[in-house]
Nucleic acid binder design. Sequence first.
DNA 1: TCGCATTGCTTAACATGTTAACTGAAAGGG
DNA 2: CCCTTTCAGTTAACATGTTAAGCAATGCGA
Lengths: 154, 154
Amino acid sequence: MSSIEKKPITALSRTRRTLPMALLRARETVMDRFRPMLHRHGVTEQQWRVLRVLDEADSIDASELAEGAAILAPSLSRILKTLETRGFIELRKDPGDGRRSLISLTRAGSAFLAEVAPESAEIYKEIEGLIGAQRIETLLDEIDTLIVSLSEKR
Amino acid sequence: MSSIEKKPITALSRTRRTLPMALLRARETVMDRFRPMLHRHGVTEQQWRVLRVLDEADSIDASELAEGAAILAPSLSRILKTLETRGFIELRKDPGDGRRSLISLTRAGSAFLAEVAPESAEIYKEIEGLIGAQRIETLLDEIDTLIVSLSEKR
DNA sequence: TCGCATTGCTTAACATGTTAACTGAAAGGG
DNA sequence: CCCTTTCAGTTAACATGTTAAGCAATGCGA
């Protein structure tokens, strides 16, 4: 035994054995493999997510982008400013709705993505090799089920 | 179709269908149910994790606490300062090793935890009701397997 | 069409995440 | 012992997370 255990008085589950902690640890464990690579390329994990979502959907508005990248609006505002300064994205007003702004990748943005994507894909394959592609698919399905079960049911 | 799809040129998986994004979304979906309650009690999610880990292990050092709560050392430094100011925790030097500091809950900290714990437990039960306790157990096991598969194998 | 609530996005303020640099204490080797 | 290395924590700097407030454009009912 490395440390003395103590019985908590509360009705709480063991912290390690809860969904929030397990999901957090799992995500950190996975991201540990990507972070050094992203850092070498000078982008944060969130900036990288934004670029990927933009690559998948051509010219979307900020709300869809926020949803797609799982980033809250205030954070996205700052990130878009950074990416625009860096020349990776382009913003223009939605001609039909003056409130919305439409965002798209620039040539430089696409080029950057094309440069980093192979490394990212390779890391993902390493992970698949360690866990098993089928096991990952199963896990993704179960996670989707969990999300559906908890969404919009209050 | 709500938005126009575009085929990305890259070798990347669909962003939504990747481990980091799925784990992030799942965690956010779960935490959405806890956040309002924690906010009412004036603690952040991270502060709450620290208090819970302290409740489970009596008087541990900062490194173990960081590991247990899945919080990096710099963040923990700030959080401990906050919790100490609030009177929930107590720090003292390790008599055997002048570098380490031993941290423990105060009476007030235990009292706070005892006050909030029932609400937290109730929310967790709601979640179990929506997902199924057995399904959660299975998921937790699979996540543990994933973490083990990816840890320390570089 | 006026008045007002709603929507899309930004700003503000504070807490945490992330990397790097730094400090003091302990450990090890010569 | 001294010197160097390692280790535990902290501080710094910048990016993001989180909630609340603000602002302009839009939608809508009276």
